[in-house]
Amino acid sequence: MNSGIRFDSVTVAYDGNVVLDALDLTVEPGEVMALLGPSGSGKTTALRAVAGFVRPVSGRVFLGGRDVTDLPPYRRGVGMVVQQYALFPHMRVEENVAFGLKAQKVAKGEIRGRVAQALDMTGMAAYARRHPRELSGGQQQRVAIARALAIRPGVLLLDEPLSALDARLRSGMLAELARLHRELPDVSILYVTHDQVEALTLADRIAVMDSARLRAYGTPRELYRSPSDEFTASFVGNANLLPVTVGEEGVFFGGRRIKVSGQAPGAADTLCVRPHLVGLGDGPNQLEGRVSEVQWRGATHRLYVDVDGHRVMADVRELKDPPSHGDAVTLHFAPDDAVLLAAGGSHD
């Protein structure tokens, strides 16, 4: 079992256009690593380089310490699940799950047991004789996962596996994937997504990709609480990014002095504070402004407040009498809840 993944300065290009630029990244054995980023960021290309579907122009790919850069996909021993399930419509569920085992020339007597085990693990044992057209989208995706697990891979590659599902099914499948991770502690999982919730929910670590390059990586908590730059702050959760000036006398936003715990990472020109950490009413680091929009979100109200021409978001607990458009309000946030980001990013 080839558990663990290492990208050693992997670069992929098509017709001279670099789509993955010198990626250095390690996924430890048993770890779930989410590749998070917008379309065109290079995350799916990285996954396909592991699977063997694209060939790096430079750099090497290692699985379980073994250089697999020159190996064809079928010799890498990885399981892969894609967005559109890719089930064979003419085959029953059990035949779909057995497909990879037959390709590996596993003994017939062993195939039956491994198919049953994979279907049981994904909760699909009762559907073994059905065709894909007789299943819901969520059930089809479970079959695709069972097929990937049946070959007992050391590495499982998941490429936007939940994006075709509706919100309710997606939530249920997230729970199922988390359960599978607990039951398969030795399998390394590389999970490609553009969905922040999926990455924060499942991943042990997140690698943030943008414009073919790795921008940041760390645990979900690290990236959420202490992002390294504006892109990471805005892509890993919602963020207020406010332009500030930092000098010997302190941190200033729009002429107001802002108290921030800790020190700036060198030169800083942006203050980051998460919307749920912004309160309504008097408190430390007060900001006065006017409401431009109010959104009711069930348990909370999202307030958009114009403060000196800058939009500040505040997620406050559901209000019986929320402010209206144009109302003057006061916001506040604690010094411990603000992070200074290094200079060099752009402001909205």
Rank of each mutant, 00 (worst) to 15 (best):
E248G: 14
E230H: 06
P227G: 07
V251P: 11
G255M: 10
V251K: 10
V246N: 06
F235P: 08
R256L: 15
L242W: 03
G237H: 09
A233I: 04
G247Y: 05
T245L: 02
V236I: 15
E249W: 01
G250V: 12
F231W: 01
V244M: 05
E230C: 13
S228Q: 14
V244P: 06
E248Q: 15
G255N: 09
T245C: 06
V236Q: 11
F235G: 01
F231L: 00
N238I: 00
T245Y: 00
V244H: 04
P243C: 04
E249N: 14
G237M: 06
D229H: 10
G237F: 07
F235S: 02
F231I: 01
F252Q: 12
G254F: 05
R256A: 13
V236T: 07
L241Y: 02
G247R: 09
F235C: 02
A233Y: 06
R257C: 11
N238G: 13
L242G: 02
A239K: 01
G247V: 08
E249K: 13
V251M: 08
L242F: 08
A239L: 01
F252N: 12
S228N: 12
F253N: 03
E248N: 13
S234H: 10
P227H: 04
V244K: 07
P227W: 06
D229E: 14
